[in-house]
Design a binder for these strands. Structure first.
Lengths: 222, 222
DNA sequence: ATCATATTCTACCGCGCGGTCAAATTAGTA
DNA sequence: TACTAATTTGACCGCGCGGTAGAATATGAT
């Protein structure tokens, strides 16, 4: 009778190694799918999407490649799920500050702060900013871009709002949105957790640098 | 007697199709190397580095793959040359405005304008901003990063200068440099020449957005 | 124990990649 | 013309990739 790997006590919960979800038998498909995309996100962020092979991903999960294909149709479905989670997280940030946090300018500042924090610290948020979607099939890519566009639209709406209530100088919302998102996304690329600057420090500095030029004269006088 | 492709009248000069450099015989190695990296840059920008195969590059030049290896050791040497040209162009911008174009803040503004223009319009400048160097061997990548670091250092020096002469508010030069370069590099990614905004429009808007928050109070009063 | 189902495995496929080789072709020279 | 050196080529290699087929195994219900 062969040895049997026994179920680990720490197999469930957030702190566990992801591959514990695969240790023995029956746990729900959802748990295993989550374990896969979580591990995949880390690998994608470390080596890039193209250079992360399905075999490596499987190895990290202590399973074999075909098992992956039992849970996902193909490689790009896995990346798509990473995007979906990350974009959902960013959207929830945006909705959270919606109610009433001051004028448009103040809310833009808050959003910059939150967006930067997500992109620097959230494992799936980082995927949205960092991972190039050009490797995807055109159909899947269109789906991703649609989701991204929603974020961009909210961003522009915030800028337009600030201009309408007089708290921001007049400007091109599209370009403002691109400039801010670009600076932050790029930070997602060079930022390494081992560096000397914390995500909070970076987020605060970026907020000041990127929104400092947008305050209206009236808003500045106050 | 087989047909012989005759030398085109337009085979030389800047406006010609790059592959004309290969049409017949003897032209200098340098011309052909230039034709290769120029064509490669366009393909890298269009499809990405990883997805541009040496076979495709050769096909675009109307030669065969092994001929490519007569002029370059390997694929990454070609990308390296693209980087080198782009970085040289950016450095020349920086040197050009060095002498005396006003205080630190004014010169930073000029530099932002020029950097954005190069990254949006110059074929090799775009490579520097857009093409991920993580596909390179670690040795080559170190070379590229050294070159990039020089640009970053100049950038930070400009910021430090502005702080020293009182034209800019106090800030972290490293983060300012990253924020500005990031926003512009990211523009290199989304910008398509077919879009409705011209590089000049983008460059000017970015200059205002990205430097607006850096002006010192004293500088603002004037 | 038995069976049906859910899950995971071993073994494999076709493909296109970066890169190489030795042969063929061309150009320059005399 | 004939010789040499520079250039280009067709044919090929090994590899690792994404993905698959079908057998093997584990699980849960009876």
């Amino acid at each position: 009778m062969p040895l049997k790997i026994r179920k680990s006590n720490a197999a469930m919960g957030h702190g566990a190694e992801p591959w514990n979800a695969f240790l023995v038998g029956h746990r729900s498909m959802d748990l295993k799918r989550e374990a896969v995309i979580k591990t995949a996100a880390h690998l994608f962020l470390e080596h890039g999407y193209q250079k992360t092979s399905m075999s490596l991903l499987a190895a990290r999960l202590k399973i074999t490649k075909p098992a992956l294909y039992y849970y996902f149709r193909n490689k790009e479905e896995i990346l798509m799920e990473c995007y979906r989670s990350g974009i959902a997280e960013i959207e929830s940030c945006l909705n959270r500050l919606s109610p009433d946090a001051g004028n448009g300018f103040a809310r833009l500042q808050l959003y910059v702060l939150e967006y930067a924090t997500v992109v620097l610290t959230h494992e799936f948020g980082r995927c949205v900013a960092m991972i190039d979607d050009s490797a995807l099939s055109s159909k899947t890519r269109r789906g991703v871009r649609d989701l991204k566009r929603k974020i961009d639209a909210s961003f522009r709406a915030l800028v337009a709002e600030g201009m309408a209530d007089g708290s921001m100088a007049i400007c091109n919302p599209k370009l403002v949105s691109f400039a801010i998102a670009g600076a932050i996304n790029w930070a997602g690329i060079w930022y390494k957790p081992s560096g000397e600057l914390s995500p909070e420090q970076i987020a605060e500095a970026f907020m000041e640098i990127l929104t400092g030029g947008l305050r209206s004269a009236a808003n500045r006088a106050s």
